[in-house]
Amino acid sequence: MFPNLLLVHQAVLAAGPTDAGADIPPILIGLYVFVLATFVGFEVITKVPPTLHTPLMSGANAISGITIVGALFCARFFEPAVANVIGFCAVVFAMINVVGGFLVTNRMLLMFKKKN
């Protein structure tokens, strides 16, 4: 269910006793990914200069629009119609977040750049 983590999964399997881990629930693998990604985030974003506080925030905000992936899945159903309509709304709001977020971040960063 988490094929991009197949390697991690296999490593976990290899490390444990042969019969353990045969069915690690997806939520646990998801948690591994979540915790590790949080640490990656903390490590990668070190010492942000104050000039970049706002662009970093609006850029990160645009990234949180990744929920568009889920929204597209929800909008695809023809039946049941209600779930479809809710999914459609989710697509609209996620796209506002994504397109608006990246564009406005770019606008700000160009503003910083032109004086250099």
Partner: peptide, 9 residues
């Protein structure tokens, strides 16, 4: 992953 990155930022 992306959500966690934004969360830590």
């Amino acid at each position: 992953i992306s959500g966690a990155l934004v969360g830590s930022a």
